[in-house]
Design a protein around this nucleic acid. Sequence first.
DNA 1: TCATGTGCCTAAACCTTCTAGGCAAATGAG
DNA 2: CTCATTTGCCTAGAAGGTTTAGGCACATGA
Lengths: 189, 189
Amino acid sequence: MGRVGLTTERLVRAGAELADEVGFDQVTVSALARRFDVKVASLYSHLRNSQDLRTGIALLALEELADRGATALAGRAGKDALTALANVYRDYAAEHPGRYAAAQLRLSPEAAANSAGSRHARMTRAVLRGYDLTEPDQTHAVRLLGSVFHGYVSLELGGGFSHSAPDSQETWTRILDALDALLRNWPGE
Amino acid sequence: MGRVGLTTERLVRAGAELADEVGFDQVTVSALARRFDVKVASLYSHLRNSQDLRTGIALLALEELADRGATALAGRAGKDALTALANVYRDYAAEHPGRYAAAQLRLSPEAAANSAGSRHARMTRAVLRGYDLTEPDQTHAVRLLGSVFHGYVSLELGGGFSHSAPDSQETWTRILDALDALLRNWPGE
DNA sequence: TCATGTGCCTAAACCTTCTAGGCAAATGAG
DNA sequence: CTCATTTGCCTAGAAGGTTTAGGCACATGA
């Protein structure tokens, strides 16, 4: 039996693909071993445990999302930037539902610190530079946008908006309009 | 060995408690059997399978949430109603994190039809009666509120807003102010 | 060409899910 | 009250996932 050339990197990537195909909670060390046609124990030279694999997929997803966000925001401002960033999350979730689910994994403090989480916060702040908000309102707005993006995408992914009129795309567009209006006219205290 | 008096009902309730204590994804038929000091196989007279248990917990959580919502909305309108319903979700998630996680479970179409899901949609519509929205804007607004409530609560539960200023309660209050302002001034097309 | 280390292996323990079949306690009919 | 039936929890066991320990062989660099 020759060597297959396993690395943590390759395992995490394959795990991410597996997650998109069968769902994040069906990602198992055994299934991954099958995919590489290798015995299960062999993976434990590259992974501390199965949680390690899941964390790796989560970190990968967060990086990919941040990369897409950075690209989308380049050269945009105001509502254009808002829409672009919002669509990054929604489109990524549609293309990679397993990875998106992974990105919601509760990370340990150390893992969170090493994650792209802060890039996401910074991107949202970048969007808000197009609106006239100062602290602490800007932080409130960052959290609102995070909530809406995450909430909408995960309800949509769960099938919450399918099979009922009006269609989800229409609502999405109108919600972004509404957020833009709200940010331009943020209520003072 | 006497009989313990297991029923599906009791198992689901105990499963919900277990979920709140150790997390929804740690809820297992084995752990439940341990809790009743009974052999695992005994539970299979009352549960078709472990997914059945999880679904039962999800349905219980949705009912409890809807009950709390109905109580909170009684006699309230406008922003008062908006705040009351929003706090139902947030407080329930804080008190019962495992059950709240269960409520996010992707249900089969049949289970969803038997769930309290439609009560939740109706409650949100009831809140919106205090604002001047007609279809299809009302549906857009229902979806926005669902997204914000769910998104905020799940980010908060995941620890997203802890250990950074301003504190989460402050943001929550300001987000509800902002949503109220937005609904009173919903942008037309 | 040999020494070393690494990669994947076998073996085995332990846990969770789930099915089949059995005994005994509870229940209800006569 | 007694007996038949139902029901509740049991033992046994298969199948699959996680994880550790230890081994052999292939790759690498001296």
